[in-house]
Simulated scan of single mutants.
Amino acid sequence: MQRVATGHYEITTTAGESVRSFVPDPLPPHPSLDLGGQGQALKDRALLACGRLDGVSALLPDPELFLYAYVRREALLSSQIEGTQSSLSDLLLFELEEAPGVPFDDVVEVSSYVAALEHGLARMASGFPLSSRLLREIHEVLLARGRGADRMPGQFRRSQNWIGGTRPGNARFVPPPPGLVEGCMAELERFIHADDDLPVLVKAALAHVQFETIHPFLDGNGRLGRLLIVLMLVDGGILRQPLLYLSLFFKQHRSRYYELLDEVRQQGDWEAWIAFFLEGVESTAAAAVDSAHRLLELFRSDEMKLTGLGRSGTSLRQVYASLRQRPLVGIPQLAARAQVSFPTAAKAMERLVALGIAREVTGGRRNRVFAYDAYIAILGEGAEPL
């Protein structure tokens, strides 16, 4: 099938120089997609992997427990692609108010991503549609604090941006002129909600490229474009819980990712991009299922260490259950969550340390913080700073 560029160029003047900015055609692609037998097989495997992930989350003692840590892992990975240098432990420490010494700007950026995702999911759960308005709301939360707070949070850009290079004239890619952004986003919203026969996974793949091409905000486009994927999968009923994130796959295949975006724009090769996207969905979902099973095995193994401890066993199990909910925590928070006294929580935590389940990480005598190292290690795989 003969493919051509998926948009046209507008010639504008920015900062006194002529600029060619790319304006994408509305979705869906024309001519229609031709996924072929291999593409259909990829789609089926990706969908099956998503189903397994949705099912395994129900096996966890508390699905919210896995969701809490997994969302934070995604926030970390997505922000790392943009250049932050935080770790999962940094973020969990930051969320403990008394924990000192965490790199502020980087971790605020990651924390804001968590808040943005949670805001979007809560709004959708209340019946608010996935729309340009909701994306602007999420963007406002995403850039509310730290770097980017002065980059028009919650508003479409009113000036020209670009990707790569020092100015639009020597950039690798220049998105649409600001006057066309709102119209392009309205078209994207119409596509997302169109009653067509495109599978949800394919629509999410197409919408992600379109959003990245429009680049509607001055900052935060990459993070919000990756968030759009999971929001569409939840909205489309592929996942009940937001547990599928492609940031690690994109991080591991950054060069190919950018090459494929360019090939879509210049040559209309949507099929190659969709194949890459579906491979990412399948491998990412399979990895998340593996993480969930390993967590279950970890919990079973550590719970076995808590048997036969007499009367102290009850409070110890309560404290251990709270540590599973927050794998990096101080004694006051632990006591409140386990609904036991401070001395009881402290004594139980000392026992968990002796059993090799927990570790004290501050080295101090006051405001001590304890980590469930094995849990954090499983969730932190691949989330090391670039």
Rank of each mutant, 00 (worst) to 15 (best):
T84S: 14
V23E: 03
P26W: 10
Q80W: 01
S18L: 13
A49C: 09
L27W: 04
Q80L: 09
Q38S: 13
A41L: 15
P28Y: 10
A49G: 05
T14K: 06
L91F: 06
L42Q: 10
Q80P: 05
L65V: 06
V23N: 03
Q38R: 12
I81D: 00
T13W: 02
G51K: 03
L47C: 03
C50D: 00
S21L: 02
A75Q: 04
Y68G: 00
H30W: 07
A41Q: 12
Y68Q: 10
Y68W: 12
A46I: 02
S57R: 05
S89F: 05
P26H: 06
T84G: 12
R72S: 07
S78A: 14
R72Y: 12
G55V: 01
A75W: 03
A58H: 11
G51V: 02
T84K: 06
A69I: 15
Q40H: 12
R52F: 05
P63S: 10
P24N: 06
T14I: 13
L92R: 00
R52S: 10
A58C: 04
R52E: 14
V23F: 12
T12I: 15
Y9W: 09
L33C: 08
C50N: 02
V19Q: 00
D44N: 11
L42W: 11
R52P: 01
L47T: 15
L33E: 11
E17N: 09
A41K: 07
T13F: 05
V19S: 01
Q38W: 08
F66P: 00
